[in-house]
Simulated scan of single mutants.
Amino acid sequence: MRVKVACVGGGPAGLYLSILLKLQDPAYEITVHERDPEGSTYGWGVTYWRELLDKLHAHDPVSARAVAESSVRWSEGVAHVRDLATRQPGDTGHGIGRHRLLEILAARARSLGVHLRYEDGITPDTVPDADLVVAADGVHSALRTAHADHFGARLTPGRNRYLWLGTPHVFDSFTFAFVESDHGWIWCYGYAYSPERSTCVIECAPETWTGLGLDRADEAEGLATLEKLFAHVLDGRPLVGRSSGGGAAQWPTFRTLTNRTWHHGNLVLLGDAAHTTHYSIGAGTTLALEDAMALADAVRTHDGLPEALAAYERVRKAALLPAQSAARHSAQWYENLTRYIDLPPERMFALLGQRHSPLLPHVPPQLYYRLDRAAGQLESLRRLKRWLGPRLARTPLG
């Protein structure tokens, strides 16, 4: 019997799941339904780390190689605070254009025989007849909303306003810039996603947003204001918005989504339809792709669909707990920026890197910094002792 899978949503999670299921069983009849035209997408670039690339190589080396070849890399972070800057080495990060990522995954899915249907919006009344229906239709998932009481979705709004932009300025490292305006602090996160383009996310408290007039400005006026504020990190290059019209830019507050359960009959949630984590930890695409890996593995290793979906939910909910905790504390760090911003830049940057810690909000920042440094030195001594131990044992005495 042919197994039919309908994936509603042609983002990274839906496309990658279709690839993995086809690789596991070429007899699967898989259709991805995407409401938007092919090649249209929101956002600019996405970030990921080496660990994800290793997992992609383990599951499908063909698409993994294409993703790696289309990515840019950085190994430093820099923070600008007022007119001071500090730079620190870090783990190697990767950036890839969202459009390019979708292009790679769509081409790979097609090559395996997946049916891709664009401009094919699916509603709860037009759900395809399939053995497995995957709701990969985002945070506002219509398929999830149709069974709202069952899934128990909960949206928790954050405090700060943010705006996702692009720029032709290419950042040479992951860049933070904190600017003090007459109405409070406003900051950006910037990272390259191609040799020609970067993503630039702007964030500020609601009182700064209104004080600067960004709530009332049309898109062109708002971009002009932001370009002046961040000219020192943009090298005078422009910022690019999503719209070419004169309407107001959308400055949402981030909403964290959780669901009580992730499946209902033959319907299962994937990616942002199941969960969201604050953008400041840069894990959204990674977690969505890991969802796809886990769901494909569960389908492969369980004979029955109910058992497979239950196992998928159990595995992913457990795996998400650290990321959700890190994202919650990261968002709170920025919401309480004034607690840290007047530290010397290198100390502020160090605590920026520690923003996932549940202890940081409860310990005076200067004390936390000293304790963290002391703990780091002790760990360095422990590593040195472990390294020297066997060597000293082999060293002749006298």
Rank of each mutant, 00 (worst) to 15 (best):
S40D: 12
S40T: 14
S40K: 15
Y42M: 14
Y42Q: 15
Y42T: 15
G43S: 11
G43F: 08
W44H: 12
W44T: 11
W44A: 09
G45C: 03
Y48Q: 01
Y48F: 15
W49N: 09
W49F: 15
R50Q: 15
L52H: 04
L52T: 01
L52K: 00
D54V: 13
D54M: 12
K55R: 12
L56C: 05
H57M: 11
A58T: 10
D60A: 04
P61R: 03
P61N: 05
P61S: 03
P61I: 01
V62T: 12
V62Y: 06
A64S: 07
A64K: 05
R65I: 00
R65G: 11
R65K: 11
A66C: 06
V67W: 02
A68E: 15
A68L: 12
A68S: 13
E69I: 00
E69G: 07
S70T: 08
S71M: 03
V72S: 04
V72G: 00
V72L: 07
R73A: 09
R73H: 09
W74I: 02
W74S: 04
E76F: 08
G77Q: 01
G77T: 05
V78N: 06
V78A: 09
V78E: 12
V78F: 06
A79V: 14
A79I: 13
H80P: 03
H80K: 08
H80A: 08
